[in-house]
């Protein structure tokens, strides 16, 4: 898979393809790596594009299985999960890529870190 493959989205969300290529990754460890490398303007741009579409994206995903097999469905879930991780960094943490005043997130090991969605 290349990042371009992650950008194949359902037609109604095709305009979000550049965001999907930039942010969507199948595993928590990969999403975290992108998040740690992002800066405030990156989070702001992701938020500003996604926030108005989140309701519609979740309504679409509500019609998809929890573990989608079809590529567009799977990528739509991947994009929602990327935003699920990134949104607090704009809305709560003032664009900081780390949780402020926190333990080193790189020392926190998720058991599921390398598992794909």
């Amino acid at each position: 898979m290349t990042t371009a493959d992650y950008a194949i989205l359902p037609e109604a969300f095709a305009d979000l393809a550049p965001l999907a290529a930039r942010w969507s990754r199948p595993t928590e460890n990969e999403r975290n790596a992108l998040r740690f490398a992002a800066r405030a303007p990156d989070f702001a741009a992701f938020h500003d594009a996604m926030a108005p579409r989140l309701d519609a994206l979740l309504a679409y995903l509500a019609q998809c299985p929890a573990e989608p097999v079809e590529t567009p469905q799977r990528n739509a879930l991947m994009l929602a999960c990327a935003y699920a991780e990134a949104a607090p960094h704009h809305e709560l943490y003032a664009g900081n890529s780390e949780v402020p005043f926190s333990f080193d997130a790189r020392r926190f090991v998720p058991d599921h870190g390398d598992e794909a969605l």
């Binding site: 979740l58 309504a59 679409y60 995903l61 509500a62 019609q63 998809c64 299985p65 929890a66 573990e67 989608p68 469905q73 739509a76 879930l77 929602a80 999960c81 699920a84 991780e85 949104a87 969605l117």
Partner: peptide, 11 residues
């Protein structure tokens, strides 16, 4: 039970 719930749980 669906992908929206999955994404919400991830959040």
């Amino acid at each position: 039970r669906n992908a929206a719930e999955r994404a919400a749980q991830m959040h």
